[in-house]
């Protein structure tokens, strides 16, 4: 853990204890406290009344029996660089199977290809889990979509309806980005992966202003969920879907995926590497590739950024 992360973590521990702290105690090197969703009133950083911080025991109490058995270690940090980076580092020293890591605040939350993922203090869920997957590395792309479906399923069971997926696994609510998922393969030989998920529970205006895309959070759509309950249930759902994926691959989930796919049947643009292709989304293949009907026939894609094509 870096010095700065340590300083922020200590500040947050104090803040949780005292509910408010002089803004002068905020570590200056971390930049503005506002970008981490912290509010300042009359020279003090104030903790919101309904703010819920993560507690390992509370997360654990919400794990399914199978996942509680599978669990080897559960780490909860007030502040961390990134939960995915944390587990990827640990994986250099040994197995991370059964390891869950959560952080109330991420300093360097990671998105795809170096993109930043904002995770303000206790207003977002940042969770990573390490898991060994009994599947061949060549088929693992489909797992990425399976994890997206696991999140949709879990949110639905908690009363959050109408969450949609944007291929491969962005979570959308009313067209805005509610969450993102990033998988990193630790080793192709052992087929161990680190699955990271970030979900917006509540976004302040300042944080919204820093994001260059349309975002969504649960609270502005009237959903109030406990972060600890969500963490436990989400981890359980993800592990459950990984096990289903081990048994039958992505193919049995294809129909459910397409039913939740926000861009199904719609004209889209995909930027994949140097390629930019326009077409209508036909669906996904049995391995999870995106299939587009283009002017020159059907084409499938295993990576890229998809966006809706505005009608001219």
């Amino acid at each position: 853990m870096s010095d700065l992360t340590q300083q922020i973590a200590e500040f947050l521990e104090q803040l949780i204890e005292h509910r408010h702290l002089p803004v002068s105690l905020w570590p200056q090197d971390a930049g503005s406290h506002e970008q981490y969703g912290l509010r300042c009133v009359d020279g003090s950083i104030v903790l919101g009344a309904d703010l819920e911080v993560l507690e390992a025991s509370a997360v654990q109490a919400n794990l399914s029996a199978t996942v509680a058995d599978w669990l080897q270690q559960l780490d909860v940090y007030r502040a961390l660089g990134s939960t995915n980076a944390y587990l990827m580092d640990r994986a250099q020293q040994g197995s991370v199977d059964g390891w869950i890591c959560l952080a109330d605040l991420q300093i360097q939350g990671r998105g795809r290809r170096g993109r930043r993922w904002m995770s303000p203090f206790a207003q977002n869920l940042a969770m990573s889990l390490g898991i060994t997957v009994g599947a061949s590395p060549a088929t693992l792309g489909g797992l990425s979509l399976a994890v997206g479906l696991a999140a949709v399923d879990c949110l639905d069971s908690m009363g959050v309806r109408n969450v949609q997926l944007k291929w491969p696994n962005d979570l959308l609510l009313a067209g805005g980005k509610l969450g993102g998922i990033l998988l990193e393969l630790v080793s192709a030989a052992k087929v161990q992966v680190v699955i990271g998920i970030g979900l917006n529970l509540e976004l302040s205006e300042v944080v919204r202003g820093e994001v260059d895309q349309v975002v969504a959070d649960l609270s502005s759509h009237g959903y109030r969920v406990s972060r600890n309950v969500l963490a436990g249930k989400l981890a359980s759902s993800i592990v459950d879907y990984v096990r289903q994926f081990e048994r039958g691959g992505f193919a049995p989930m294809r129909e459910a995926y397409e039913a939740h796919h926000a861009f199904q049947g719609r004209p889209c643009r995909i930027v994949s590497g140097h390629d930019e292709v326009i077409g209508v989304v036909v669906g996904v293949s049995e391995t999870g590739a995106l299939i587009l009907e283009t002017g020159t026939g059907r084409r499938s894609f295993v990576s890229g950024d998809v966006s809706l094509r505005e009608a001219n």
Binding site: L140, G141, G142, L183, L185, S303
Partner: peptide, 10 residues
């Protein structure tokens, strides 16, 4: 190698 947002360091 990126495959459907699965990043694989070779």
């Amino acid at each position: 190698i990126e495959s459907m947002k699965m990043m694989n360091e070779i």
